[in-house]
């Protein structure tokens, strides 16, 4: 059985179509990332899967349970870390975790033991008894992620779990999420492309409410990025040589003293031979690896911002 299925899932807000007839199929234990520019429909999709929003059309199933007909069954299976930090500011970390754990029917002992583990993993043990209103943004987000996990749900929805975290905390959260791979089904949204690349089994790119591409990160990059790019450090680059290069390749730019050359039929040997023939001295040449961000920009025409 698939962990998450959607069938022509659609959400309209008056005349705006936020999510437009999307079909998702996420297997159990899979880490699936939903990527897209701001306003693409990622959070609306998650909200429908978490029973917070009713679809205008179509249906969604979580472990076979319909989100509209059996919301309580769905809610027993899921853990959600919303985009807002969504914590209770006048409680401490232990109390925040206990609240969610107990609403899910956990015993006091089980909540205590599980909270201790999560606080340790999230690096919050020392501040566990401080009111969370005094926490930094990063600490609040880590607690929010812990609250999604306290009742050990089989499906996790993590909406921008590393937004606002410093690189070190972000890396720690990635590592924790990576440890859950295979054990939990995780639906992740993120602005950090390297995060999706590093963590995801599968990625779906959503733009203006529609899924425009779906697949493993490597597969997406291979399928959608036919253009190859090389960065070359060389001397004696004359105007005549630049003119010649522009005639041969689709994109030639000078970036920080280096040549950045892109073309669908870019061949390393052929390029360096041509430079040599025209009197240039090549010091180094490197093939640029495509990133998911390149795929996204190519597909949506929009750049992401943190």
């Amino acid at each position: 059985m698939d962990a998450i299925r959607t069938f022509k899932l659609t959400k309209r807000f008056n005349s705006l179509i936020a999510v437009n007839s999307i079909d998702l199929k996420i297997e159990q234990g899979e880490l699936f990332s939903l990527l897209g520019p701001n306003g693409a429909g990622k959070t609306t999709t998650i909200n429908m899967l978490c029973c917070l929003l009713k679809p205008t059309e179509g249906t969604a199933q979580i472990m076979g349970y319909d989100t509209i007909k059996e919301p309580l069954k769905v809610k027993e299976l899921i853990g959600v870390s919303p985009q807002e930090t969504a914590i209770s500011e006048h409680l401490n970390s232990w109390e925040n975790l206990a609240l969610i754990g107990k609403i899910h029917g956990m015993s006091s002992d089980a909540v205590k033991s599980r909270s201790g583990e999560l606080l340790e993993v999230m690096g919050l043990t020392e501040r566990g008894k401080d009111r969370v209103g005094k926490f930094s943004g990063g600490m609040k987000r880590r607690l929010s992620t812990a609250m999604a996990m306290v009742h050990a749900p089989s499906i996790l929805f993590l909406d921008e779990p590393t937004l606002g975290l410093d690189p070190q905390a972000r890396r720690a959260t990635w590592e924790h999420i990576a440890q859950l791979k295979g054990k939990k089904t995780i639906l992740l949204t993120t602005h950090y492309m390297e995060e999706a690349d590093f963590l995801s089994d599968k990625v779906a790119i959503i733009d203006e409410g529609r899924i425009v591409a779906e697949g493993a990160p490597g597969q997406l990059k291979a399928n959608f990025l036919k253009t190859r790019t090389m960065l070359i450090s060389a001397e004696n680059i004359t105007d005549e040589l630049m003119y010649g290069l522009k005639g041969r390749y689709s994109q030639v730019k000078e970036v920080e003293g280096k040549l950045r050359i892109s073309d669908k039929k870019l061949d390393f040997r052929e390029l360096t031979d041509y430079l040599y023939l025209k009197g240039a001295t090549v010091h180094s040449a490197a093939l640029e690896e495509p990133t998911l961000e390149d795929v996204l920009i190519q597909l949506t025409g929009k750049e992401f911002r943190d």
Binding site: C50, L72, K75, E84, I100, I103
Partner: peptide
Amino acid sequence: ARGFLSRLMTTPAR
């Protein structure tokens, strides 16, 4: 406004 109610609404609370 802070998303906390939404979080609670994703739990099995009625």
